[in-house]
């Protein structure tokens, strides 16, 4: 499959200014902007990085460039949520989608391991889609766990947090320049572990309608906190209550985004 990906990248590089993918060197693998003339033997698929975030960064920096990105299912879902929030310009981005293996899907508890490219013009899918993996067992059994136990579980987990902000920094759908987690109004500076449960509930609340379950936060967490259990539960609730699925449809605006015009129509307030 890797040969097929490299061939596709070589073909697309004749039309595009550059393609974001992983490059492996003797130091290790990391995101890279491949351009014509680069050695595509160095292009690899592992370990995973949020390449959608790199693509966003480069689109903002190179405003006229037409770029490509090698993307897994979660990357594409993240691209969708970022596009809705003006962090990705879909007209300047070609996606080379790559399916994950069953083992990778199981590791990530991923329900949708193949990228959905219906809404990305000029894109290609490489690999055979595999079925979704079962959810994290804690998520599956969560409804049966009594409230007191849930509280004790999260308290024990979040006490390990040393506030590196890594879960935020790596997250493809975290992009605000001013972050509530750094605002002394909400999170007391200099306190370790951060306020329980405020710090992590702010993050979870901001991930409502955004988190695409890529698991990057969990992999970056030095304290091994199962962050995506919380975000998966939030995503489930949002799907059940308002039918919104992050990453599914680029044309469906997030429910918490409202325009002033909407507000005027809905509001009964007397000013």
């Amino acid at each position: 499959m890797i040969t097929e990906i490299r061939d596709k990248v070589a073909e697309q590089l004749e039309k595009l200014d550059g393609i974001v993918a992983l490059r492996s060197t003797e130091d290790g693998a990391a995101p890279y902007l491949f351009q014509q003339g680069d050695n595509l033997e160095e292009l690899v698929m592992n370990p995973r990085y949020p390449l959608s975030k790199t693509a966003s960064k480069l689109q903002k920096r190179f405003k006229d460039a037409k770029l490509g990105v090698v993307a897994r299912g979660c990357d594409v879902r993240a691209l969708v949520e970022m596009a809705k929030r003006n962090q990705i310009d879909p007209d300047r981005l070609v996606v080379i989608g790559v399916t994950c293996t069953s083992e990778e899907a199981e590791f990530c508890f991923c329900a949708e391991p193949a990228p959905n490219l219906d809404q990305w013009s000029g894109s290609t899918l490489i690999g055979e889609p595999v079925p979704g993996a079962p959810p994290n067992p804690i998520v599956a059994e969560y409804a049966q766990i009594p409230y007191a136990e849930r509280w004790a579980f999260w308290k024990a987990q979040f006490t390990k947090c040393h506030k590196c902000f890594g879960c935020r920094d790596i997250c493809p759908v975290c992009f605000c320049e001013a972050c509530a987690l750094e605002d002394p109004l909400w999170v007391e500076p200099g306190l370790l572990a951060p306020d329980f449960p405020m710090y992590h509930l702010i993050k979870a609340q901001h991930m409502t309608t955004r988190c695409v379950g890529c698991r990057q936060c969990e992999m970056a967490c030095p304290a091994d906190i199962p962050l995506t259990v919380l975000y998966d539960l939030v995503r489930q609730d949002v799907a059940e209550l308002i039918g919104y699925v992050p990453g599914a449809d680029i044309n469906e605006m997030p429910p918490f985004t409202l325009t002033l015009a909407d507000a005027a129509i809905e509001s009964d307030l007397v000013y």
């Binding site: 290790g28 995973r48 590196c164 890594g166 967490c221 030095p222």
Partner: peptide, 14 residues
């Protein structure tokens, strides 16, 4: 960015 395949930090940073 963290170094995801590095044996010491294993993709995490402080």
């Amino acid at each position: 960015l963290p170094a995801n395949d590095h044996p010491v930090s294993q993709g995490s940073l402080c």
